[in-house]
Design a protein around this nucleic acid. Structure first.
Lengths: 234, 234
DNA sequence: CGACGACTTGACGTGTTTCAAACGAGGTGG
DNA sequence: CCACCTCGTTTGAAACACGTCAAGTCGTCG
């Protein structure tokens, strides 16, 4: 089994630019190898806010586990539209691809630490590393489940329903509490939900007006009426 | 390896109701066991049009391969809205779930034959059945890839782009030709693309007016300008 | 204190849905 | 063999949800 330490830490709230403020897509990013492997082939790396972890088209073969921070995985269409396919929080694993290259890009949303594992070391070699191969299967199945849940959201739900479902999804990944620190800006939420950032903002305002949530600051949400949220998200 | 016979047969065009005309969701469906296994634990079954193969909530554990016909996999939301998560044509495998129960339902779109395999026989038992376990991995990866491609379609594309992308996806699964027999009604296409059936119909009319497709009959499409379609689907 | 990025709010435009009616092909029964 | 019924599809007109464009506010950093 992979190490299960340092998971479930509180969502990151620091939004200060760490390097290259107001400039995105700088590359190569600030990557610092923090520790060498002690568990199988794991290597921990740090990424500054808005820096690239991997890009579409690059060779795949590395699986990442978020130690702290938050990651967005996305694709950009020809005319600049962006679809975020997933957010990854501490404990989540990502980077698995059906073939030998990445079909999506990944960026740190906030200063983020991830541990990298070679997929070949988890996958190849017959009956060897059975536990790890099981872990890889779990990653695949969880990705599939999330992807299909996401499909549902995008296909047949109104803006209000999408935002409500998003909040429930996010709070469900934390300590099971009712409070929520969003690491990502409105624009990211919008591109995850297939909406515009203005619509996301309006729906949050509407949920607030309905007293389903409190919004003490833009990134901090308290779900005050989970039943109502659950009701409207279906 | 699972048998790779009887794949890639021409799309089914017979739309006559075989049992219970104009009545959906009849259960138990007409299931006929056609042949017992000769390859590992495979059993072939026949399903009439609009009959259920499995339903949400039922225990999972069986993987199906389409021999002939076509299958839709879907979920129904509380208020009746339906999202189709995938269509499966001859050669496709489906029914894989992250846990021990189905989260989606599956129905035959037209009279359909499928071969059923026990997932446990493909998955469990350490290093045994290595080839089959590889096959199961392929099913998982293909499901994941399709699901993520579908996400993109639903999240950030206009109605016209969705329909164009859908036609390209479907023709890409046939013999690589430019002609296409759609086994599913407009309503199914709409629920796959997150649109209404009227919008799908209008977009097809628009593509026809642009001379990107020909539409000799409702279910038969000829892609006369693939370049234009590809251009507008991205 | 000024500047910048993130967020909110408003007014307006539009793509898609909704509601409704008509059309067409296939099958059935007279 | 023709009339009729049904189901799937097309087409039209009107309503509406969300997008677009544009200010304006808030909080943080320099």
């Amino acid at each position: 089994m992979l190490t299960q330490t340092a998971l479930q830490q509180a969502p990151y709230t620091d939004t200060r630019p760490v390097v290259a403020p107001s400039m995105r897509r700088e590359r190569p990013p600030y990557r610092e190898v923090v520790s060498a492997a002690k568990e199988p082939a794991g290597m921990t790396m740090s990424f500054a806010r808005n820096t690239e972890i991997f890009a579409e088209g690059e060779p795949s073969g590395t699986i990442y586990k978020v130690v702290s921070g938050a990651v967005r995985v996305y694709k950009i269409l020809s005319d600049g539209r962006r679809q975020i396919s997933a957010f990854h929080l501490p404990g989540d694993m990502f980077g698995l691809e059906p073939d030998d290259q990445h079909h999506f890009s990944a960026e740190a949303i906030v200063p983020t630490k991830v541990t990298a594992y070679k997929a070949s070391s988890l996958f190849a070699g017959g009956a060897r590393n059975d536990g790890l191969r099981g872990e890889l299967w779990d990653v695949a199945m969880k990705s599939l489940a999330r992807s299909q849940e996401h499909l549902l959201l995008l296909g047949r739900k109104s803006a209000l329903e999408r935002v409500a479902a998003f909040l429930l999804e996010m709070v469900g990944r934390g300590e099971g509490n009712t409070a929520l620190d969003l690491p990502m800006p409105r624009h990211d939420i919008a591109d995850y939900l297939g909406l515009t950032l203005e619509t996301v903002s309006r729906m949050l305002a509407e949920l607030k007006a309905m007293a389903a949530i409190r919004l003490p600051s833009a990134r901090h949400v308290e779900l005050t009426d989970m039943a109502a949220l659950r009701n409207m998200s279906a």
